[in-house]
Design a binder for these strands. Structure first.
Lengths: 242, 242
DNA sequence: CAGTGGTCTAGACCACCGT
DNA sequence: CGGTGGTCTAGACCACTGT
């Protein structure tokens, strides 16, 4: 009896448990670095078995939302500069060693979103954006010119931060409570414009690798639109297909 | 008593089970498309529980070595043209739709491996290689010039196949028993040479995207070295970061 | 319908960690 | 040492498939 539900949820239990846990992480109920209750406590609280909680936690771990440490516990993932480079920065040198670029000539501005920016960030007409422009160097040599666009509502006040750090995603998480969970990149070979050529100390028309990235948050919201134009004479973009 | 083992295997049971199953697949004991014994039969045979076999099979499925179909069974993965495009061909058009290129102007030659080829394929001095050159077109327009190098010992007789099909990896599996399990790609922006420019109908020096790919087999062996130089005015390389 | 993989549970034991 | 995640087992039941 009591068949009052109109729509039963036929998805597996562990998927529903996962969603509850995702919600608690992305809402900030559990904060980055904080430890979660252990598997048995969560199982009791949610009225499922420990094995089901484990399966949900394993999914979160594979999505980099939590980190599990044997003997210590399960923790909300905390972005570090090293993590971010490994996951989101795929330019390596000829030996396959990840390059660690610095940033120079940073310019930050706040403005009303242009149509292309609204499209990339899926934001409404009249929304504000923050634009960051910078040149990135490896061993002192300029190799990337970069333009980054952020939704103004999520990052209010970022323009006052000085200096803007090299890796942004850990800043996003620590200072603005925004965790990047993934990104789509579109790569194109283009010819350097006169201005880019000057900044990168190459001839105009020199081939550059353009990386057009859209980064998403845990909830799928568009968080960042970034176009990087890279000199790939000594750097290469690395992609693993599995 | 009977402590005769010098080196105990401390790795988890399911990892060892996985290795046994990998061996049976890559040795051809189970062939592509063939169904495996069910979980309980494997568990009995290997002297472990069904849950342990399941965990090993789930790993194989996530590595695309087997396909599991509820209600039907577990099958050795069979490469199809569509699979391959999805997994290994990351050039899409502006709308994000995968491009489906044709091949023209195919040339095949057999030769002794050059130093660079030996290095890429990790093969010994004096080994033979098969070289395939071709131009690939989308909607009739040439967009890629491609050079493919294969180890001669694995693909003896491939030069006699005419025509060489568009997607090679399904041919490798069906005709030569070689399954590609992954690849590393290194991307660089380069300037078109005079010859490439002519083939792609662009001006010499036009920016091209070079994709330098090394593909590996199930056992980790280098199977293919491929350099594709792509005109990315209408095509883009797509990469998902998670 | 019988047979398969998919889910869920309960409980035992191990390996690792910090105190 | 106590507490945590990691492994392994055994068994029940569900959902899907083809006949």
């Amino acid at each position: 009896m009591a068949d009052t539900v109109l729509q039963v949820d036929h998805r597996p239990l562990y998927v529903r448990v996962r969603e509850i846990l995702v919600q608690r992480v992305s809402s900030g109920y559990w904060k980055p670095g904080q430890s979660l209750p252990n598997e048995f406590e969560l199982a009791d609280e949610l009225g499922v078995s420990q094995g089901t909680v484990r399966k949900a936690l394993d999914m979160l771990a594979s999505e980099h939302l939590v980190v599990r440490r044997q003997g210590r516990g399960t923790f909300v993932a905390e972005h570090t500069s090293a993590d971010i480079h490994f996951r989101f920065f795929h330019l390596h040198d000829a030996d396959g060693c990840p390059a660690i670029p610095d940033s120079i000539g940073i310019k930050v501005e706040v403005d009303v979103a242009r149509p292309a920016e609204r499209k990339a960030l899926r934001s409404d007409q009249g929304s504000s954006v923050i634009r960051i422009r910078r040149v990135r160097t490896v061993e002192g040599e300029p190799v990337i010119v970069e333009r980054i666009v952020l939704p103004g509502d999520l990052f209010a006040g970022i323009e006052a931060i000085d200096p803007i750090p090299n890796t942004l995603y850990d800043l996003f998480q620590r200072r603005f409570g925004v965790t990047i969970s993934g990104a789509d990149e579109e790569l194109t070979a283009i010819a350097a414009s006169a201005q880019e050529a000057k900044l990168l100390k190459v001839a105009p028309g020199a081939p550059l690798l353009e990386i057009n990235r859209t980064a998403m948050g845990v909830d799928g919201r568009r968080i960042e639109w970034r176009i990087s134009r890279c000199l790939t004479t000594r750097l290469h973009y690395f992609s693993q297909l599995r």
